[in-house]
């Protein structure tokens, strides 16, 4: 009886979290498309759907500026948060978010190379970014296996990889100044240059990767028990680690191809969700995607309205919030549950 009560209350708690996450996601979407230097009323938004995207100035702002940007923020936030949750679980390290261990930087380098090669298509950028992110995350994973994935080791590997990939990107930009993709706002992360041509390929790949991860959530939980225990349960741990990291790289890479090097969302959101919902993979992934999307979108809306008429890259807000959070995790007391 007592157990069933615990079980029920757990279900209710998770249900409430999904409700709150869903409402926040919807609120972020509505605010994202309606708030800005030119406020759009619900009537103007409905009018864009009813009369066509070119029917008025408001409809054009909605369809070609606000909607792609808002959707990109929602999708990228969800993707980076879910990628962070997966990477933290697979590497068993609470600091292992895509921005910190160099995964975003790997994707950024690949996007720079892609642009330098004259490839500007959305699919090409997303694929290049995925390859860069995957190479980085596999380098970290193999390094963690080889030298031990303690918190400190992983951060140092991240510092090294971030510096290396940053230097390589700078080299490309120095030698080919016309490659403007590594401009300052790309390094910080922002959504002002999002177009449907870049959004749709990245969104398709992100949705597929997230679907794949959700279908493997029990496997992610088993891997969290530790390599030997997971192997004892019949899992091919090497293969599954690679599959999980590949899907996480797909999420992070596609997000970077849209938003640039957006940091800390992959660290903060999974941590907060883990505290609220527990570490179970299904809810960790689902809620991280919901809250991550809402969080980045709300931050982006704040970034373009707080200092109007000036607009600051959303990455600056993320960094102001994320850096203290990172330090808090780094120095918090031991004895908390392992990932």
């Amino acid at each position: 009886m007592k157990n069933s009560k615990i079980f029920c209350s757990d279900k209710v708690r998770i249900g409430r979290l999904y409700l709150v996450g869903g409402l926040l996601f919807a609120a972020a979407l509505v605010l994202g498309v309606s708030v800005g230097s030119t406020p759009l009323s619900p009537g103007e938004v409905m009018g864009a759907f009813r009369d066509g995207f070119d029917s008025s100035a408001g409809a054009r702002i909605f369809a070609y500026v606000r909607l792609p940007r808002t959707l990109a923020a929602l999708i990228c936030g969800g993707a980076l948060a879910a990628a962070g949750a997966v990477i933290q679980n697979v590497l068993a390290n609470p600091l292992a978010s895509p921005g910190i261990i160099g995964v975003n930087a790997g994707a950024g380098l690949a996007v720079t190379v892609c642009t330098a090669l004259g490839l500007f298509g959305g699919w090409q950028m997303s694929l290049f970014a995925f390859v860069g992110a995957f190479a980085a995350v596999m380098a970290v994973s193999l390094g963690a296996k080889r030298w031990g994935g303690t918190r400190g080791t992983l951060i140092l590997m991240g510092v090294a990889l971030n510096s290396l990939f940053g230097a390589m990107s700078d080299t490309v930009v120095t030698l080919m100044p016309e490659v403007g993709v590594m401009r300052n706002d790309f390094r910080v992360g922002e959504f002002s240059a999002v177009t449907y041509g870049r959004l749709i390929p990245a969104a398709v790949m992100i949705v597929l990767a997230l679907g794949g991860l959700l279908s493997l959530h029990n496997g992610l939980d088993v891997l969290t028990l530790g390599e030997e225990t997971a192997a004892g349960l019949g899992m091919n741990t090497g293969l599954m680690r690679t599959v999980f990291l590949l899907l996480a790289a797909l999420l992070a890479g596609c997000a970077v191809s849209l938003a640039g090097l957006l940091s800390f969302v992959g660290l903060m959101v999974p941590h907060a969700v883990r505290r609220l919902s527990g570490g179970r993979g299904l809810h960790l992934l689902g809620l991280s995607a919901l809250f991550g999307g809402a969080f980045v979108c709300l931050c982006d809306t704040a970034a373009r309205t707080a200092f109007a008429p000036y607009e600051i890259p959303v990455g600056i807000i993320m960094a102001f919030l994320g850096a203290p959070f990172f330090l808090w995790i780094l120095f918090r007391r031991k004895g908390e549950p392992e990932i």
Partner: peptide, 30 residues
């Protein structure tokens, strides 16, 4: 069944942990 020496303290409940003992009996998506 194999119980290794190195066991983590996973961020999950007792019931969820024990349930993973059924993992080898299931196929994708487990």
């Amino acid at each position: 069944a194999y119980l290794s020496q190195a066991r983590r303290c996973p961020d999950m409940t007792v019931e969820q942990t024990v349930l993973h003992g059924r993992f080898p009996h299931l196929r994708y998506p487990h």
